[in-house]
Simulated scan of single mutants.
Amino acid sequence: MEKEKIVSIEERIPKLKKLRKRKTNRRLIFIISLFFLLVLAIVYFQSSLSKVQSIDVEGNELTSKADIIAQSGIEKGGSVWKMGLKQVEKKLERDPKIQQADVSLVFPNKLNISVEEQQKLAYLAKGKKLYPVLNNGTVLNKAADGTPEQLPILYDFKAGKELDQMMDSLEQLPGEIVNSISEIYYAPKKTDRLHIQLFMNDGFEVSATLKTFSEKMIYYPAIVSQLDPDIKGVIDLEVGSYFRAYHSGKKEKSEEPVPEQ
């Protein structure tokens, strides 16, 4: 039995040679492949293939493609590898109209810029012109052309804390409520510098304060459903919830509950 287990060196030598040859061939193939990859890389970097040939922009409505490319600092013909894509994204996100930017390379030399813009929630009236206002309080420099979208028109607001708070409140409301608002006036009182007055598309008026506007205005559809649509008046959301008809001096308490402050 022991003799059967013994393998002679003469029998093992051919197998060892084959194994060595395989390892040598693998190493040679690896070295040759690596060499060709390095050659290809050098050729790529030295050729026009590594230069930016085209730039695509998507997701933009508030800013033109040309402006976004200009802000990115990317130029056609520049090396795609010398520019830091993350740095380009940061440059674009400095624009108050852009919430998020993503820049990617489509090999070999095409760049794709995808932007997510801030949301347009209202218009600010300045004289006879209406300027779009974004959810972060940014007022665009270019006035709206033609018929504006069905969004609230803001009057007597100025860029600053009150406008930012107004836009933050609108952002928290459902779209159907925002679209039901026709006009919003900034009308500060001695007792409340954050008082606002709203005129709704359904003919009702709302008196509110920015302190609790988003919390109470969410109940507007339920409150209106309890009122006679033929009797218009003011829905007071400043303290509690009250309705006062235009042709009546008395207040009728709405049954719709409003969160207490």
Rank of each mutant, 00 (worst) to 15 (best):
E2R: 09
K3Y: 14
S8Y: 06
I13P: 03
P14D: 08
K15N: 10
T24P: 00
N25D: 12
R26A: 05
R27H: 06
L28K: 07
L34Y: 04
L38D: 01
L40C: 02
A41T: 08
I42A: 14
V43D: 08
Y44K: 07
S48Q: 14
L49D: 01
S50W: 02
V52R: 07
I55H: 02
E61M: 13
S64G: 13
K65W: 03
K65P: 04
I68F: 08
A70W: 07
I74Q: 07
E75N: 09
E75Y: 06
E75V: 12
G77A: 04
G78S: 15
S79W: 00
S79F: 00
G84V: 01
Q87C: 02
V88D: 04
K90R: 14
K90P: 06
K91W: 04
R94E: 15
K97Y: 03
I98M: 06
V103D: 02
S104E: 07
V106H: 14
N109Y: 10
L111T: 05
N112Q: 04
E116A: 13
E117S: 12
E117P: 05
Q118A: 15
K120V: 11
L121Q: 12
A122T: 02
A122I: 03
A125M: 13
K128L: 13
K128W: 11
K129D: 15
V133S: 07
V139I: 14
K142W: 08
A144Q: 06
P148G: 05
E149A: 13
Q150G: 01
L151M: 00
L151Y: 00
P152Q: 10
Y155F: 11
K161P: 02
L163G: 12
L163A: 13
Q165Y: 00
M166I: 02
S169L: 01
L173G: 09
E176Q: 15
N179R: 12
N179A: 14
P188F: 00
K189R: 15
L194Q: 08
H195E: 03
I196K: 02
M200Y: 01
N201Y: 00
G203P: 02
F204D: 04
S207Q: 09
S214L: 09
Y220A: 06
Y220C: 05
P221S: 03
D230Y: 11
D230E: 15
D230Q: 15
G233E: 01
V234I: 14
E238Q: 14
G240Y: 11
S241I: 06
Y242G: 00
F243R: 08
R244T: 08
A245R: 03
Y246E: 11
Y246I: 13
H247R: 14
H247T: 13
S248C: 00
G249V: 06
K250T: 15
K251S: 11
E252L: 12
V258E: 11
P259T: 10
Q261D: 13
